[in-house]
Computed example of a mutant assay.
Amino acid sequence: MIEFRTADGQAGKAFEIKSSTPSDKYLLVIHEWWGLNDYIKQEAARFARELPGVNVIALDLYDGQVAADAEQAGKLMQGVKTERAQSIIRGALRYAGPKAQVASIGWCFGGGWSMQTALLAGSQAKACVAYYGMPEKDVAKLKTLNTDVLFVFAQQDKWINQEVVDQFKKDMAAAKKGLTVKAYDADHAFANPSNPKYSKTFAEDAHAASVAYLKKNLKLK
């Protein structure tokens, strides 16, 4: 676990796995509505193994809080203030440094924030993976993206549904930005093994697609 100064003058927390060789390549991992729990740390470690030469930082947008059940998770997610979350992300970007090449990935709540991370990273953004998270709807903002986006879509999702994804496709086209949508006949959060709707087959396929995309965009061998 690390601490760093955030843009609002406070401290931010994150779980970091440094590359075994010095590197300016970073993957910022953003948790689901549960918070930065052991599962997300395990996922971060998996990416660190599969992406040698990349520093992996799993951000904590809940400032140390982790949900024990869905009701608490909902409250924590609703309680996130946009300005604070942006301050934490900006702090992590500053921690990575001005030469950092930044990729982001997140699920659910973190999927939406993965996109916001790519926007906040500006010219340093090199890759963005969003699993069933709310896309940015402002085309003017999307025009500032410095990367294409890999969007993982669960076709049975009642929240990030077909209508949301269709609009996102139109918005990204209007912004002249690249978008790849990987669609699965699954429900929201199908990639999390603790979810009753978990699909190992789809989760592994989406993970493999994410790793291949990250390797390509970060120019890993």
Results as ranks from 00 to 15, higher is better:
68 A>M: 14
68 A>E: 15
68 A>S: 14
68 A>I: 14
69 D>E: 01
69 D>L: 05
70 A>Q: 11
70 A>G: 09
71 E>S: 13
71 E>F: 15
71 E>V: 13
72 Q>I: 09
72 Q>K: 14
72 Q>P: 08
73 A>C: 07
73 A>W: 02
73 A>M: 00
74 G>Y: 04
76 L>D: 08
76 L>R: 10
78 Q>I: 08
79 G>W: 12
79 G>Y: 12
79 G>S: 08
80 V>F: 10
80 V>N: 12
81 K>C: 05
81 K>R: 15
81 K>G: 13
82 T>E: 15
82 T>P: 06
82 T>H: 14
83 E>V: 13
83 E>W: 09
84 R>N: 13
84 R>M: 06
85 A>M: 04
85 A>S: 10
86 Q>M: 13
86 Q>Y: 13
88 I>E: 04
89 I>R: 05
90 R>F: 10
90 R>W: 11
90 R>I: 11
91 G>E: 03
91 G>V: 02
91 G>K: 05
92 A>E: 02
92 A>I: 07
93 L>N: 08
94 R>V: 13
94 R>W: 11
95 Y>L: 05
96 A>K: 01
96 A>P: 00
96 A>D: 00
96 A>V: 04
96 A>E: 06
97 G>F: 06
98 P>M: 08
98 P>V: 02
99 K>M: 10
100 A>W: 03
100 A>E: 01
101 Q>W: 09
101 Q>K: 15
101 Q>A: 14
101 Q>E: 15
102 V>Q: 06
102 V>G: 03
102 V>L: 03
102 V>K: 00
103 A>W: 02
103 A>H: 06
104 S>F: 07
104 S>Q: 06
104 S>V: 06
104 S>R: 02
105 I>A: 11
105 I>V: 15
106 G>I: 01
107 W>Y: 15
107 W>V: 09
107 W>A: 11
107 W>L: 12
108 C>E: 05
109 F>T: 05
109 F>K: 06
110 G>V: 04
110 G>M: 01
111 G>K: 03
111 G>V: 07
111 G>P: 01
112 G>Q: 01
112 G>Y: 00
114 S>H: 00
114 S>A: 14
115 M>H: 01
115 M>A: 09
116 Q>V: 14
116 Q>K: 15
117 T>R: 07
117 T>P: 07
118 A>S: 09
119 L>F: 02
119 L>H: 07
119 L>S: 01
120 L>Y: 08
121 A>D: 04
121 A>T: 07
121 A>Q: 08
121 A>K: 03
122 G>Q: 12
122 G>C: 10
123 S>V: 13
124 Q>W: 08
124 Q>A: 13
124 Q>Y: 07
125 A>W: 02
125 A>N: 00
126 K>T: 00
126 K>Q: 09
126 K>W: 08
127 A>G: 00
127 A>V: 03
127 A>E: 01
127 A>N: 05
128 C>A: 14
128 C>S: 13
130 A>P: 03
130 A>S: 15
131 Y>S: 10
131 Y>P: 09
132 Y>S: 09
132 Y>E: 04
133 G>F: 05
133 G>N: 07
133 G>I: 04
133 G>Q: 08
133 G>L: 07
134 M>Y: 13
134 M>A: 14
134 M>F: 15
135 P>R: 05
135 P>I: 02
136 E>C: 11
137 K>Y: 11
